[in-house]
Simulated assay, not measured.
Amino acid sequence: MTTITTQDGTHIFYKDWGPKDGQPIIFSHGWPLSADAWDAQLVYFANQGFRTIAHDRRSHGRSDQVWNNNTMDQYADDLAELIEQLDLKDVILVGHSTGGGEVTRYIGRHGTARVAKIALIGAVPPLMLKTEANPGGLPIDAFDGIRKGTFDNRPQFFKDLTIPFYGYNRDGAAISEALRDDFVRQGMMGGLKGQLDSIRAFSESDFNEDLKQFDVPTLVLHGDDDQIVPVDASARATVKIVKQAVLKIYEGADHGLTVTHQDRFNADLLDFINS
């Protein structure tokens, strides 16, 4: 397997497809998935001449399952080490859901010297948790429920999660049982401890200060029927902070729109990159 080794000795698996001299696009996946969630995008954009890269977040997929350091700061530092060890420049960073938080924290901690553009897709910033300062967020009980479901019966919880994740509980939805099974497969590749830690990382991390560091073209794309990361407290709040951001809303789209709206998403992301 292709891996890098981070400063704390963790092996991070990554895929590196397409021409090595192409402009690099790094895709950061959502919880509890892996780089496999981006396979269609990796192929599509590699065929367009880009160097496409996707990594498994620590304690997810084929990367090492670690007991400590499953934090948003560490996720961002791992991304930085991947970029630096591969000596990537003019990178396009694409983050979905928790991956959007990872990308955002990377900018906050490491800046944009190596970054050309950013795309946040169904992403968790600025803050998912409901607080006095963030009344539009989700209550802590919602995340405690995710923790309990993951701990008690992880495969069943992941299988059940696919229903709201892909909008399969909406009228007319075309349910793919194979896609649901693959979601469980990806989730079960990761480590329970790291995935539990990651729930805190994606739900309680405050990205407001990180977003203020954005100074490159940014696409914020979200479905307005996202049942996992509600659009008002995320995408619509983010574009109020990132002044040069472009907001694109998919009417009626779910959280997993990179799959359920795959062709449209790929075309829109390509348009943004080429614009």
Rank of each mutant, 00 (worst) to 15 (best):
I26G: 11
K15P: 03
V216Y: 13
Y106A: 00
G256Q: 07
F202M: 13
G256Y: 04
Q227D: 08
P19L: 09
P125D: 06
V242G: 12
V66Q: 03
D87N: 15
V91Y: 03
V242H: 08
A201S: 13
S63V: 00
G256I: 07
R51F: 08
P217S: 07
T5G: 03
P135M: 00
F158D: 01
G256N: 07
P32T: 08
L138A: 07
D215N: 15
E209H: 14
E251D: 13
L192T: 03
D171G: 03
G95P: 06
I26H: 08
L269W: 12
S205I: 08
N208W: 04
S275D: 06
F165Q: 01
E132N: 01
V115F: 10
V239N: 09
M128Y: 15
A76N: 05
Q244A: 04
L179P: 00
R62K: 14
P230K: 12
V242T: 06
F202D: 03
I26W: 06
L257H: 06
L196H: 11
Y44V: 00
M188I: 05
A142L: 08
Q244Y: 15
N134G: 08
A174W: 02
F151C: 00
E209T: 05
A35K: 02
R170G: 02
N68A: 13
G95W: 02
D268R: 10
A253H: 10
K243E: 15
V259D: 11
S205P: 04
S28F: 10
T258M: 13
L129N: 07
G122A: 14
T5I: 05
E132Y: 04
Q65D: 08
R51M: 09
L196Q: 09
A80P: 03
Y166K: 00
N47W: 12
A54L: 02
G100N: 13
K89W: 04
K248A: 02
A142N: 11
I121L: 12
V124A: 13
F143T: 05
L192I: 12
